[in-house]
Design a binder for these strands. Sequence first.
DNA 1: TGAATATAATTTACATGTAAACTAATTGAG
DNA 2: CTCAATTAGTTTACATGTAAATTATATTCA
Lengths: 157, 157
Amino acid sequence: MAAKSRLQNELKKNLPFISLKEEALLNIMRTSDQMENRIGKTFRDFGLTASQYNVLRILRGAGEPLPALEIASRLIQVVPAITGLVDRLEKQNLVVRKRCTEDRRVVYVEITKKALKIVDSLDQPLAKIQEELLGHMNQKELKELIRLLEKARESLH
Amino acid sequence: MAAKSRLQNELKKNLPFISLKEEALLNIMRTSDQMENRIGKTFRDFGLTASQYNVLRILRGAGEPLPALEIASRLIQVVPAITGLVDRLEKQNLVVRKRCTEDRRVVYVEITKKALKIVDSLDQPLAKIQEELLGHMNQKELKELIRLLEKARESLH
DNA sequence: TGAATATAATTTACATGTAAACTAATTGAG
DNA sequence: CTCAATTAGTTTACATGTAAATTATATTCA
């Protein structure tokens, strides 16, 4: 019924608040967007994008070359994205591709010394930004926030 | 020794989190990514992307044509993105551009009836997904999560 | 063994976000 | 009034995320 539909829309438009679930979802996405944005600026100051930094951080953490898909799975990215990402990192001499000899389908990605220096030099600035972004929350609040977000993600398992 | 946190296991990270702040930030971003991903699939089922849906939802909520930059500001997107977004929506006959006669710099974007139908038809599926994603959290938890995220964003003001 | 599958990456096509430069139109100070 | 500054949008250039198809290699099982 057209009239009823319009009325429903009218009511929806004027509702002072949305459902708690919708409000929570919007809060999660909005907070994430803004934090990513803030952190991303620091990466750009160092000539990296957030994705590029994450690849390098994973490689540093691993302490050894990793297959491309292994990196992709840790980034939770779709497979094709990793190819271009590694392409651009390789172009900047931040990683090296090495074809595996036992299984020639596998491409190992190795971080270079140049990249290690950059990633290391980002540790302090990043710690500072984390302090800037969440320094006003106390330990109890941070733990509760983490708990609630982990619980929220349980629906995705 | 305390068991590794859930996120650490998910990311197969070798090193422990340096700080609660870092863990909280990663939890925020990861949760957002996964929820966006899940919701995005529904939009695609209806021939829309998340960004396109958000533009249409804003226009429906406004109840009147809005200037392009007004839409952009509500989406918290950078200015140039809105042009292409409106281009693609216009190509699908979901919005119409109307140059303002008083101030010819301004472009009003108006939602079409076709688009209104689509957005309306998404209300129920979206409510269902919200239930699927956060239905296992009780009201108290949702309110606390919202409060903590709002507090987290205070540092960005 | 050999065909059917599965796996690791890549390629292609498209939508989007970001930054910087540019155009058109309006405004405001002198 | 006039010209510099501002404002609304667009264009361009690039990095990224998503999906589908493709290539090369490896594995499995009849």
